[in-house]
């Protein structure tokens, strides 16, 4: 069984919001559109977006991490939003695990959004239907696109490549490998929705310099003379 999903690499997400607006432009002009904007040129502008990038500060100065955190529907394997929907407008596709809303069936009761723990469903105030990330279903199967462009709009846009897309049930897929090898995790596991989307944590690369590495026998001081002390320090090799 296929379960398509996004894997978001927090290790390289710079919080640029490219995924946010590119999602918006693809979906507003596409099958999921149009996504309304309220007060577009007035006070308190707001609107329907399927994907948002949030920012958190973790830790206290100077040991602070600034974490940019993109969030869209996680296409849960056990989606809380689906069984509660009274109309069947919310459904999970058997074929690929994508959770979708059928706008023609949705009555706009918002019940699904109450059930979802993640705050990723957005009620479109103009169309009066519930909306959310579609995993760009109208793009990823479009055979008129070259194969490497059959990916969600947000994934294609992301400059540092922080968004991976693929089948998390296929152990060989890029996303599964990334989850396995880089500690991929899901959000709020306690909600038992089994999100398909995963997040990859920050990693730190450090360089350790050992004292004996500092001064070696091929040191140019052997040619130039030691600059600040008259006496050349002995090299590690000489000491041994």
């Amino acid at each position: 069984m296929t379960q398509l999903a996004l894997v978001i690499d927090l290790n390289v997400c710079v919080g640029c919001h490219a995924c946010v607006t590119n999602c918006k432009q693809w979906n507003t002009s596409g099958a999921a559109g149009a996504l309304t904007d309220c007060n577009p040129y007035e006070a308190e502008p707001n609107g329907t977006f399927f994907n948002r990038v949030q920012t958190f500060e973790v830790g206290q100065y100077p040991k602070t991490e600034t974490v940019h955190f993109p969030k869209s529907c996680l296409h849960c394997e056990d989606p809380a939003c689906v069984p509660v929907c009274p109309t069947g407008a919310s459904y999970k596709r058997k074929s690929d695990g994508i959770v979708l809303v059928d706008y023609d069936k949705c009555i706009g009761c918002k019940y699904c959004s109450w059930a979802c723990p993640y705050g990723v469903r957005e009620f479109d105030e103009q169309r009066k239907v519930m909306t959310k990330c579609t995993l760009c279903v109208d793009r990823i199967y479009d055979m008129s696109l070259p194969e490497d462009r059959r990916k969600p709009s947000c994934v294609l846009a992301c400059p540092p490549g922080a968004r991976l897309f693929g089948d998390v049930h296929d152990p060989e897929s890029e996303v599964s490998v990334a989850i396995r090898e880089r500690g991929g995790y899901t959000l709020m596991p306690e909600a038992n929705t089994k999100p398909a989307n995963h997040y990859l944590p920050r990693r730190k690369t450090t360089v350790t310099v050992r004292d004996e590495e500092l001064y070696r026998s091929d040191n140019p001081h052997k040619i130039d003379g030691a600059p600040f002390d008259k006496n050349l320090p002995p090299t590690h090799e000489e000491l041994n």
Partner: peptide, 9 residues
């Protein structure tokens, strides 16, 4: 300017 709302399709 559009006031209230707009949707681009």
């Amino acid at each position: 300017r559009n006031m209230g709302w707009q949707a681009w399709f």
